[in-house]
Design a binder for these strands. Structure first.
Lengths: 237, 237
DNA sequence: CAGGTTTTCGCCTTCCGGTTGAAAACCTGC
DNA sequence: GCAGGTTTTCAACCGGAAGGCGAAAACCTG
């Protein structure tokens, strides 16, 4: 029985120049010559998919600048690429704003909302990655992976706005993140812009190990062990 | 180059007898004879992973009773099964409470919090499925896939309690779901229990197409199109 | 110093989820 | 039929979270 080949692909996202962008490289050869595709490649014989994608990304971008990598989905349509079948495990990668990794000549950052012609199903993968990021920004602390080590509230606001696709309030953003205990002032202040203005305080994310926290549960467990259901037999009070 | 084989597996969850359970079958032959494993099998040459898992599940359980199927994750450790390498795409499947599908003799429902000895990495997959379900119950309307077509608030409370692993308040559950516009009374009432009590009103989930709605965003877009940043002057970037 | 700009902060309002208690609607036993 | 028990439902309250607004703070340049 002939087994399908397996590849790993990553949609590496970063906020740069006020827009959310994805790392793509331009294909020089057929198939799909000239079109843009995601970094990745064949899965090695002794590595799992996560190890593989990190190894392959290292060829395009400094892995140490990847603040977050997570599985996105499997793309397995039998005809998703011409020729012999290839199944792809897609990843979402995040690079903090401000960093500008060295990339090969054929590689560049493209706005996810205005993609160039993409190869195969890579365009769909990018959109899935974008949607996943937008969802998770709301109910996790994934924002740390998009932000530089230190930032002002205004900078963070721009990052969130670019990633979410709508303007968010700086006031609100600061309050929400502070209340969750994610934001800590460093004490330093940023220099005001050329047109003046009050110097902004610098912040950093508290979570030093930079783990994604659990999403916020909406239906929480009751405070007192025993909720509702007053009719529990043998009321011992 | 020898390619790894690819299999699909599903953790099919259902609330039955007040506990969250998963569908497992007992292996008759080596390897791992006697241990319990997830339904699934090799990916066919002309099907994508979702088609494949639905086909393979049909052998164990009536697919029409599966209210929800979604990709969970790829498990790809090189040695996750003995012998030639096999990569697994795992799925989460949900069966509404109350249904009792026909299953083969070697197959049964086991509490996810007290699993029997499991084969390979299937135990870990079940736990991942459980965690995914618990997360999504909070911030999506995934609950519809666990509930029968009609139900009382008490019944729904039991389902949520079993799935989440802690008791939830019926009052609260009803209000939260109602406020999101997910609950609609059918007008009918259920017969009271043997010990009497007020007859409970029947409800159903409104979402007839049974789609998982977007998660509840926390950082919402501003109400009036133009938020904060009153000083947004000629920013040319 | 006046006027412009940007950040920060406090206050207010709204909304949501959690809690509680009481009322409603049924049962059984006397 | 009525008393007492059981279950569901609902209204009211509370605290906390998030959005909106404007004033104050802190800087710039002319």
């Amino acid at each position: 029985m002939n087994q399908p080949a397996h590849e790993v692909l990553a949609a590496v996202l970063q906020v740069r120049a006020t827009s959310l962008r994805v790392l793509l490289w331009q294909r020089a050869k057929e198939p799909e010559a000239g079109r843009w595709s995601l970094p990745g490649g064949r899965l090695g014989a002794t590595e799992d998919v996560e190890t593989s994608i990190r190894r392959q990304l290292a060829e395009k971008v400094d892995v140490r600048q990847l603040a977050h990598v997570e599985q996105l989905a499997v793309f397995s349509a039998p005809d998703r690429v011409p020729g012999p079948r290839v199944i792809a495990t897609a990843f979402l990668g995040l690079v903090p704003a401000g960093l500008d990794p060295e990339v090969p000549d054929d590689t560049g950052w493209h706005p996810v909302d205005a993609l160039p012609p993409t190869a195969f199903d890579h365009g769909a993968i990018v959109l899935r990655a974008r949607d996943r990021l937008r969802s998770k920004l709301s109910y996790t602390n994934l924002g740390f992976a998009l932000a530089p080590p230190e930032f002002t509230v205004s900078e963070l606001r721009e990052i969130y706005s670019a990633a979410l696709g709508y303007r968010v309030s700086a006031t609100n953003l600061q309050r929400v993140l502070s209340r969750r205990g994610l934001l800590a002032p460093t004490g330093a202040t940023a220099a005001p812009g050329p047109s003046g203005g009050r110097p902004a305080a610098q912040f950093r994310f508290t979570d030093h190990d930079m783990q994604v926290t659990d999403p916020f549960a909406v239906l929480r467990p009751p405070r007192n062990g025993q909720p509702d259901q007053r009719a529990a037999k043998g009321r011992t009070t």
